[in-house]
């Protein structure tokens, strides 16, 4: 019954394949053939990012400052700059400001973004136009928004003080008063970023099936309760990814602060690690010292990213 005619023996005969064939096959395989595609960008990026980090670390171990080239001789390499930074009050107060900025900015942005996302998810008319308006500040350069807020916070004629005068508090020196300045900066940054968190949350909300909502309604839950008990817990993933972006931004925020004054020194009370680092490097020429501060910044950023990437990896979404 069965067809057993064979056209060819199937005993493996690998030995008949010469090495030339194997080499040709290897050169033809996808990994090798596709390597120029990912390899060239990877090389360029690798040199820029990882070469840069390595170079930066090397400089941070020297004592380089001023115009001379860094001295990389082994005897000259130590962690002096790192300990020096930890002992400096400027560094510590910048780190403290940075921490406040990171926590307050991230928390409020997430909450406000979530609130706005839920608001826009209620079947509002002109939904997309409203979303576009809320997201608009995000499309602008920090240099530009800093100018706008500088004007709003202006002591004599700015919008903020017109409001405070109207309610009888009297003018406030929003940028000049060191104990208020950081708050003013955070407020402006929240204005710029909450549209972004809103978009992330909206994407999360829209990915939920409608029937969850309907089921909760059939069960008699109120809208508020439905959100708190059913919808918001499912926004964990959106929250985590938005929080990572915001926190990393809070660490490296430099432009907005610089652009407020147009000088290396940001308004008193708002100096953060990023501004301190740039000032030490490009104003004072303390290359090694600023490189060490940059390394601290990098470690802090990695401390945010690494758990996130690991979390993503565990979720299988890398």
């Amino acid at each position: 019954m069965g067809t057993t005619d064979t056209t060819e023996s199937t005993k493996p005969r690998t030995e008949e394949v010469g090495w030339e064939t194997k080499v040709r096959y290897f050169l033809n395989n996808d990994l090798v053939r596709s390597s120029p595609y990912w390899g060239i960008p990877f090389l360029l990026m690798g040199i820029a990012v990882y070469g840069g980090i390595g170079f930066n670390t090397a400089i941070s171990l020297t004592d380089a400052r001023g115009l001379g080239a860094p001295d990389y001789s082994l005897s000259n390499l130590d962690f002096e700059m790192y300990t020096q930074a930890l002992g400096s009050s400027a560094f510590l107060s910048a780190a403290q400001n940075n921490l406040v900025l990171l926590i307050v900015f991230t928390t409020i942005c997430l909450l406000l973004g979530l609130f706005l996302a839920i608001l826009l998810d209620q079947g509002i008319r002109y939904n997309n136009t409203v979303q576009t308006i809320y997201l608009l500040p995000m499309a602008l350069s920090f240099v530009i928004t800093a100018q706008v807020w500088l004007w709003i916070y202006n002591y004599d004629f700015g919008l903020m003080n017109i409001i405070t005068r109207a309610v009888g508090i009297g003018p406030v020196d929003w940028i000049g008063n060191p104990s208020i300045a950081l708050g003013s900066v955070i407020f402006a940054l929240i204005w710029q970023f909450s549209g972004y968190t809103m978009v992330v949350y909206l994407a999360g909300l829209r990915s939920l099936p409608d029937d969850q909502f309907e089921a909760a309604h059939v069960d008699g839950a109120s809208t508020l309760k439905t959100y708190i008990r059913i919808i918001i817990p499912q926004m964990k993933e959106a929250s985590v990814s938005a929080a990572v972006v915001l926190m990393v931004f809070a660490l490296k925020a430099f432009t907005f602060l610089y652009a407020l004054t147009g000088r290396y020194r940001p308004p008193n009370g708002t100096d953060i690690l990023a501004t301190l680092m740039v000032r030490q490097a490009f104003k004072l020429g303390k290359w090694a010292y600023s490189a060490a501060i940059a390394t601290y910044l990098l470690i802090l950023a990695l401390g945010v990213i690494a758990p996130y990437l690991y979390y993503q990896y565990r979720q299988g979404s890398l």
Binding site: T7, E8, T10, P12, R13, T14, E16, V17, T21, K22, R24, Y25, N28, N29
Partner: peptide, 16 residues
């Protein structure tokens, strides 16, 4: 991983 594939009597393992 192991073994060979022939089509029309010709060895295919090392052919794209």
């Amino acid at each position: 991983t192991e073994g060979s594939i022939y089509i029309g009597g010709e060895h295919m393992n090392y052919r794209v």
